[in-house]
Amino acid sequence: MEGSAPPAAPNGTSPEWEAPTFTVAARCRVAATLALFVFAALSNLSVLISVRWGRGYRLAAHLRPLIASLASADLLMTFVVMPLDAVWNMTVQWYAGDVLCKLLCFLKLFAMHSAAFILIVVSLDRYRAILHPLDSLDAGLRNKRMLLVAWMLSLLLASPQLFIFRAIKAEGADFTQCASHGSFRHRWQGTAYNMFHFVTLYVFPLLVMTFCYGRILAKITGQMRKNGERCLRRSGKDQIPRARMKTLKMSIVIVSSFVICWTPYYLLGIWYWFQPTMIRHTPEYVHHILFVFSNLNTCCDPVIYGFYTTSFRADLVDAMACCRDRRAGEDSPRSADGLAARNAAPAGEMESDLSSNPHSGNL
């Protein structure tokens, strides 16, 4: 899909066309993207490490692959989409050649699809857990199969990028761009291609997630009315476990952040696909702000997970304590050398040094 990269040069230049430049708004976009890149990389790596090797490994066996896959998809967005966008805005035109043009555009769409499809898997897992709790025995195998389908479908849907995008040099100008110009004979074909990915990236996931959580909330509301809002019943006698409800709340917030962050970006894309001239009448900073806002979703997922998961917060505390201990260990030889020097100093100088050091009692 197009939309996040600088505008491409047309196949034939016209007197009205001017090569894009690295404007002030683009610089702000690059700075914001790089800041989000650092935060998203550290936070999602922390989630992945916690789930694989930390306290997060204590999560239910069928939930661990979901959280790990969501963090992996966010990391793919972080290490592909964000750096690509930042560097591309700084260079304005494309210098990486035809092969990287195809590969990076493919990886970009693959990352976007995987992030959306894994949210679908999370929603389906919560749907089965709440509405069909007796099926939880095979939840682990079912989730692994759904995740495999999500990743493979993402690869399949992103593969056309390898044939559509290529490095194009503008006629009569020293300007090269990675674009899809010339891949479609008619403009409606390009619009149909973009609309297809709009459906697979946004509309279809939104419909599935709305159906799943709508049914869940309807059942919970019905149980509350049936029991006079005193308890939520999974069956005739058993209450819905608190941990399951907590996971449900976390899933709903994660899905909500996806909708909030990506909706403005896709609405702008639809407007552009059907009314290309709108780009001349829309301030440049609007496009940059909406793209940066969509990338904020990659940072929201680990924050939401940390808010609802005490094991992840405990792992962060342990990591910070380990860093402090390591730093203290690096400083300890210096402290020992200082103590030896003071032991060799005259008595009056030693007393003065101790009295001026607020931490002298620890030596």
Score class of each variant (00 low, 15 high):
67 I>T: 05
351 E>F: 12
165 F>C: 03
134 L>K: 11
356 S>T: 10
194 N>A: 11
81 V>C: 11
144 K>C: 08
71 A>I: 08
135 D>I: 03
39 F>C: 05
11 N>I: 12
23 T>N: 05
70 L>I: 13
324 R>W: 14
90 M>V: 14
94 W>L: 07
293 F>Y: 12
260 I>N: 05
164 I>N: 04
341 A>Y: 13
363 L>N: 14
100 L>W: 14
160 P>I: 04
287 H>I: 01
132 H>I: 02
164 I>M: 05
285 Y>W: 15
322 C>S: 12
147 L>A: 03
34 L>V: 15
1 M>I: 10
131 L>R: 07
26 A>H: 05
34 L>N: 06
127 Y>S: 01
189 Q>A: 14
232 L>D: 00
69 S>C: 13
252 I>C: 07
348 G>Q: 12
356 S>I: 00
332 S>E: 15
6 P>K: 00
143 N>Q: 12
211 F>D: 00
126 R>Q: 09
54 G>I: 08
37 F>Y: 10
236 G>P: 06
88 W>E: 01
152 M>Y: 09
3 G>W: 13
235 S>M: 10
74 D>F: 10
31 A>E: 07
71 A>Q: 06
87 V>Q: 06
199 V>L: 10
196 F>L: 15
116 A>I: 03
145 R>C: 04
224 M>C: 14
246 K>V: 12
156 L>F: 15
235 S>V: 07
75 L>C: 09
